[in-house]
């Protein structure tokens, strides 16, 4: 495997920074295009709670000052960029005065753990099943069973979650109903805690895997059909190679390439989590945080989450750009 040349690396890094920068700017601009004055909204909320407010004009001015809204736009923008760079997203208005960064910091590991594990499981299962749908040596039973199982893709994760909860928690009692770990364990790197986390994570992960593997399987099926018709697959057979070897080294190996890109794009998206899945399992991840923030109109949290999602997507794409030349020789040499 060749080394990654510096020029390529610099090029990719610049793209990464530029993407994040443009996205951060957009997040800042879009709310400012809206006619709604956040201070008005805040005041309105106070008024709804406490009736009429005296000196509302003075309070408005004071609020604007404390949020820096009396500054020229360009100053506000520069301040925002500086804060964003230091991952300072301000204070949550719903859980005032907790910093947004702290809320995200607490939620992120849970989501990353749950979603990354379920994404990897789905990726492997989905692609393998998709490949088996096309391979000519797949047992006939499988060729019937796999498309039938695809019915589950039609179920929204929310429902599959409830279904799994009903069967495996309420009825069978195999898995706990909600939460990320048991009340009887202390967080820490010991077997008790880790076991509890895995035990709690199983159902939410399964509810995601069940409904998303079809996405990968169908995509893989299409790619495999293309690869199957390629001349190199025909020649592989004419060479008398073993069918399993052809499946892995000639067919899946080539068909999987576009799927890797899709995988990276999903990593970015998974930070937002399966909002409703996290919600019904009361899983303390990013999805639940986002769900609550939207309900509470907690703009700093929404803004902070948006930025983190973009950052993760950009980093994932950057990593794929680095990995891709290692798995596809045509890319490695194509850029020369």
């Amino acid at each position: 495997m060749g080394r990654i040349p510096a020029s390529y690396m610099i090029n990719r890094l610049l793209t990464l920074f530029l993407t994040v920068f443009i996205a951060a700017t957009l997040i800042w601009i879009i709310p400012r295009l809206s006619p709604i004055d956040p201070v008005d909204v805040m005041l309105g909320r106070m008024a709804a709670g406490g009736g009429a407010i005296e000196n509302s004009g003075a309070i408005l001015t004071q609020l604007r000052e404390s949020f820096g809204l009396d500054q020229p736009l360009i100053v506000q923008y520069l301040l925002y960029i500086k804060n964003t760079l230091t991952l300072d997203f301000g204070l949550s208005t719903a859980s005032f005065p907790t910093p947004v960064a702290q809320l995200i910091g607490q939620a992120l590991p849970w989501t990353l753990g749950l979603m990354l594990v379920s994404l990897i499981i789905t990726f492997i299962i989905g692609n393998l099943l998709g490949a088996l749908m096309v391979w000519e040596n797949t047992p006939r039973l499988w060729k019937v069973a796999i498309p039938s199982a695809m019915v589950m893709t039609a179920i929204p994760p929310l429902l599959s979650g409830l279904l799994l909860m009903y069967v495996f928690s309420s009825q069978l009692g195999w898995f706990p109903l909600t939460g990320a770990y048991g009340l009887n364990v202390e967080p820490g790197w010991d077997t008790g805690f880790i076991g509890s986390v895995l035990h709690h994570g199983f159902l939410p992960a399964m509810s995601i895997v069940l409904v998303t593997f079809g996405f990968w399987a169908l995509g893989m099926r299409g790619l495999m059909i293309t690869v199957q018709g390629e001349d190199y697959s025909v020649l592989a057979k004419a060479k008398g190679l073993r069918p399993r070897y052809i499946l892995y080294r000639y067919m899946i190996r080539n068909a999987i390439l576009p799927q890797v890109t899709a995988f990276a794009l999903q990593i970015g998206g998974l930070v937002a989590g399966q909002v409703l899945v996290e919600r019904i399992f009361a899983y303390p991840g990013m999805g639940k945080l986002l769900y609550d923030a939207i309900l509470d109109q907690d703009f700093p949290v929404i803004q902070g989450l948006s930025f983190v999602i973009i950052l993760m997507t950009a980093i994932a794409v950057f990593l794929v750009d680095l990995v891709y030349p290692l798995i596809d020789p045509r890319i490695r040499h194509g850029r020369d």
Partner: peptide, 22 residues
């Protein structure tokens, strides 16, 4: 399978895509 290539070999038409690109 054991006859192919060892006893009869095949040279395909599509010279451009007959080899595994990876």
């Amino acid at each position: 399978r054991r006859v192919r290539l060892r006893k009869i070999s095949y040279i395909p038409q599509g010279a451009m895509n007959s080899l595994n690109p990876v």
